[in-house]
């Protein structure tokens, strides 16, 4: 078999596997979501014996799905941006200044991550309650997420700040660039991948955080994890779970495409001037 033929065979098998990989679970999810409550779909039947859109209509009208989607997708990007702003000064100091104990300080910043989430959530929420943050629950969760996920943002941005090249800054200054212009031409290109990575990680952490969002937000604010834990845990109903997952796939696919586009535009080799 020639190389080109082998390539063709391999390519076709890969396409078949990938298609099955996507098609089989999605088909199962779609079929399960259409199971009518009047008759269960048991293993001896290839297709559900009775199909309807009952679950879709019921979930959309009677669950907290709409408000949960809105809250989570408003909360996570806001928390990501706020966290980035809060992390930047510390990351700048750790990345650009040499001082005794710098490595210790870097490690200390990561320490909160080793505390079990159960402890953090109970005590941090309790502190928020005591500080009187409960008047605006959304704000309280936003603040909590921005503070709790600081270690990730600080760590990533510190590395980015370390990668900013001093000769770029000096050259910009020699050419008479203002503060803002220096930041734009010398700092920003090197920081960009770190900024996107930090935003992404905090976004993901925030959108999947359950305990604090539940303790502080409940009963008036529902986020996606609260809804998922609630629907997929104790009272797991497979057809309802299928509806929920199919609806949640939509924003995630859009996000994945945006992310792909962002990461392409933040190629570190282009910015550093080194191929």
């Amino acid at each position: 078999m020639t190389m080109s033929k082998l390539n063709k065979v391999l390519m076709i098998s890969l396409l078949v596997i990938c298609t099955l990989w996507l098609v089989v679970p999605f088909t199962m999810a779609v079929l399960w979501s259409l199971v009518d409550p009047s008759q269960p779909w048991t293993a001896d039947k290839l297709l559900p014996p009775a199909m309807s859109f009952y679950r879709w209509i019921d979930m959309w009208q009677n669950s907290s799905l709409k408000s949960a989607l809105f809250t989570s997708y408003a909360l996570a990007p806001s928390a990501a941006v706020l966290c980035l702003l809060l992390a930047a000064p510390t990351a700048f100091a750790l990345g650009r200044f040499k001082f005794p104990g710098r490595e210790v300080a870097k490690t200390l910043c990561l320490l909160p991550l080793v505390v079990p989430p159960f402890i953090t959530s109970i005590f941090f929420s309790s502190v928020l309650f005591q500080l009187g943050f409960t008047g605006w629950r959304f704000g309280a969760i936003l603040f909590a997420h921005a503070v709790l996920f600081l270690p990730y943002a600080i760590r990533i941005l510190t590395v980015s700040f370390e990668q900013v090249r001093q000769e770029h800054i000096d050259a910009a200054r020699d050419l008479g660039a203002s503060h803002w212009a220096r930041f734009r031409v010398a700092y920003l290109p090197a920081l960009k991948p770190g900024i996107f990575a930090a935003l992404l990680i905090v976004f993901i952490q925030s959108i999947e955080e359950f305990a604090i969002a539940f303790i502080v937000g409940s009963p008036s604010i529902v986020t996606i994890p609260t809804l998922l834990f609630s629907a997929l845990g104790q009272d797991f109903v497979r057809p309802n779970a299928a509806v929920l997952s199919l609806i949640l796939v939509v924003p995630n696919v859009i996000l994945m495409l945006v992310l792909e586009w962002l990461l392409k535009s933040a190629n570190p080799t282009l910015s550093s001037g080194k191929g």
Partner: peptide
């Protein structure tokens, strides 16, 4: 009657976290 979304451990954690609030949820 309001029945919020939630889980068993979530409810327990909320109960403990709010025990010192003057008025809880």
């Amino acid at each position: 009657v309001v029945i919020p979304e939630g889980t068993d451990t979530g409810n327990n954690e909320k109960l403990l976290a709010e025990r010192n609030r003057e008025t809880g949820d």
